[in-house]
Simulated assay, not measured.
Amino acid sequence: MTNHYGQSIRSDALEPGPDDYAGGGPSRIAHKIVRWLPVYGLPVIMVLLIALFSILLPQTFPTFLNVRAILGDKAVIAVLALAAMVPMVTGKIDLSVGYGVALWHILAVALIVQSDLPWPVAVLIVLLLGAILGVINGLLVELAQIDAFIATLGTGTILYAISLWYTGGRQVVGHLPDGFLLINAGDIFGIPLPAFYVLAIALALWVALEYLPLGRYFYAIGANPRAAQLNGISVRSSVILAFVVSGVLGAFAGVLLASKLRIGQASVGLEFLLPALVGAFLGSTTIRPGRVNVWGTLIGVSILAVGISGIQQFGGEFYVEPLFNGATLIVAIGLASHSGRRRAKVKDGRNDKKRSA
Rank of each mutant, 00 (worst) to 15 (best):
I146H: 02
I29K: 08
L298P: 00
S337Y: 03
L56Y: 04
I125K: 05
G72D: 07
T285K: 06
A253F: 03
F243K: 09
L230H: 12
P38K: 11
A83L: 07
R216G: 00
P225V: 07
V346Q: 14
S11A: 15
V331C: 09
K353D: 11
N351C: 01
G168E: 09
L143T: 13
V97M: 05
V79S: 10
Q59D: 14
I45Q: 01
T90S: 15
V292Q: 12
Y217R: 14
A84R: 04
A30Q: 10
A200H: 02
R216Y: 13
Y219W: 03
W36G: 00
L209G: 06
N66G: 01
L274E: 07
F281L: 11
I55Y: 10
I125G: 05
F324Y: 15
I33S: 05
V113D: 01
W206P: 02
A228C: 10
Q171E: 11
V294G: 03
Y40V: 15
G232V: 11
I299S: 05
P26H: 08
G310K: 03
V79D: 07
V173K: 12
G326K: 07
A305G: 13
T2K: 12
P58G: 08
R170F: 13
S234C: 04
I287M: 13
A131H: 05
G186V: 01
L117R: 02
A305V: 05
R10P: 00
G326E: 08
V198S: 04
I77D: 15
S356H: 09
G25T: 09
V292T: 14
G279T: 06
P87D: 10
L80R: 08
A202N: 04
V292G: 07
R170W: 06
L176Y: 08
P289S: 07
R10G: 14
V121P: 03
G307T: 15
